[in-house]
Simulated assay, not measured.
Amino acid sequence: MKIFGPLYERAITWARHRHAPAYLTGLSFVEAIIFPIMPEVMLAPMSVAQPKRAFWFATLSIVGSMAGALVGYFLGHYAFEALKPMFAALGMLPAIESGIATVQAKMAESPWAVFFFLVLGGFMPIPMKVFTWASGIVGVPMLQYVLSMLIGRGKRVYLLALAIRLGGERAEATLRRYIEPIGWIATVLLAAAVAWLVWRSQH
């Protein structure tokens, strides 16, 4: 069953729209709070379509993500208990609660231990929203939180932009050819990462 190929083709359509930069920024914003689709899904085809603007697109994604990260943090800090039923209905509650336990364990070490964990978390196939809500709930210091979000998400989007900027049409052809196995591998990695968070929270 092909799932990721059609999604990629849809993302390509969005990427060619004249409002695509605004869509990318908006997607990056809501993904940091609740939306399940990572902004790289739009960033990649947009960068492929206009390689010379890849770094500008990555910057727009960072701006949206950082704004969303702040909103997610404050929602986690002030509104998590009220929104628990919604997360349970969306199937997100176990991942967020596991993220809370992991962030709490790092906070017990030091705020900078949380910083390095969140920076590394930027490369994990775990949705950003898990870390934004968990950080707000636990009360990660704002300096460490903002820096970790900026570095963690920044290295992902800028490395993607760099790869496409250098790869050009070959990068697009490779991505289109292997999008289905890449999508399934990412899904498996996400499931493994959530299982690891659950395991960490219980030990």
Score class of each variant (00 low, 15 high):
50 Q>S: 10
198 V>P: 00
201 S>I: 02
104 Q>P: 00
95 A>H: 05
105 A>Q: 15
155 K>N: 04
28 S>F: 07
108 A>H: 13
144 Q>A: 13
37 I>F: 13
38 M>N: 07
61 S>P: 09
168 G>M: 12
18 R>F: 06
3 I>V: 13
48 V>P: 01
164 I>S: 05
128 M>H: 14
96 I>G: 01
100 I>T: 03
4 F>G: 03
71 V>M: 12
2 K>D: 04
149 M>V: 11
94 P>G: 04
22 A>G: 04
167 G>F: 04
156 R>D: 00
146 V>R: 11
27 L>F: 07
29 F>W: 11
32 A>G: 06
125 P>Y: 07
184 W>F: 14
23 Y>D: 01
123 F>G: 13
27 L>R: 12
31 E>M: 10
147 L>I: 06
47 S>Y: 04
4 F>A: 03
28 S>Y: 05
173 A>P: 00
45 P>Q: 10
155 K>F: 12
122 G>Q: 11
110 S>M: 10
192 A>P: 01
125 P>A: 09
197 L>V: 00
94 P>C: 07
183 G>F: 05
47 S>P: 09
85 P>Y: 11
40 E>D: 15
103 V>D: 04
87 F>E: 04
153 R>E: 03
172 E>W: 10
149 M>Q: 13
44 A>H: 03
196 W>R: 11
8 Y>V: 01
56 W>P: 00
58 A>V: 00
185 I>Y: 10
89 A>G: 00
140 V>F: 12
123 F>R: 07
117 F>S: 11
135 S>T: 06
70 L>A: 14
43 L>Y: 06
29 F>P: 04
18 R>L: 07
46 M>Y: 14
7 L>H: 05
46 M>E: 11
99 G>P: 03
156 R>L: 13
115 F>P: 03
200 R>V: 09
56 W>T: 06
65 S>G: 15
175 L>F: 15
168 G>T: 01
8 Y>G: 02
8 Y>N: 10
120 L>N: 01
168 G>V: 08
165 R>I: 00
90 L>K: 02
7 L>G: 11
196 W>F: 14
75 L>Y: 03
168 G>F: 10
180 E>A: 08
78 Y>L: 12
73 Y>H: 05
76 G>Y: 01
155 K>T: 01
60 L>C: 15
183 G>R: 05
24 L>D: 02
74 F>P: 01
151 I>C: 05
175 L>W: 14
57 F>L: 12
21 P>M: 09
199 W>H: 14
102 T>Y: 14
60 L>N: 10
143 L>R: 13
101 A>V: 06
9 E>F: 08
186 A>S: 09
95 A>R: 07
51 P>F: 05
50 Q>D: 09
150 L>H: 04
43 L>R: 08
182 I>H: 01
201 S>E: 03
37 I>H: 07
118 L>S: 03
73 Y>D: 00
151 I>Y: 02
129 K>W: 09
185 I>L: 14
170 R>I: 02
23 Y>K: 15
180 E>G: 05
105 A>C: 09
150 L>R: 07
192 A>F: 06
107 M>R: 10
88 A>S: 12
2 K>W: 09
157 V>Q: 07
56 W>E: 03
64 G>S: 07
55 F>W: 13
101 A>R: 10
40 E>C: 08
162 L>S: 09
1 M>Q: 10
103 V>H: 04
91 G>C: 05
10 R>W: 14
192 A>E: 01
74 F>L: 11
66 M>L: 15
108 A>C: 03
158 Y>F: 15
17 H>C: 08
61 S>W: 06
128 M>T: 02
128 M>A: 13
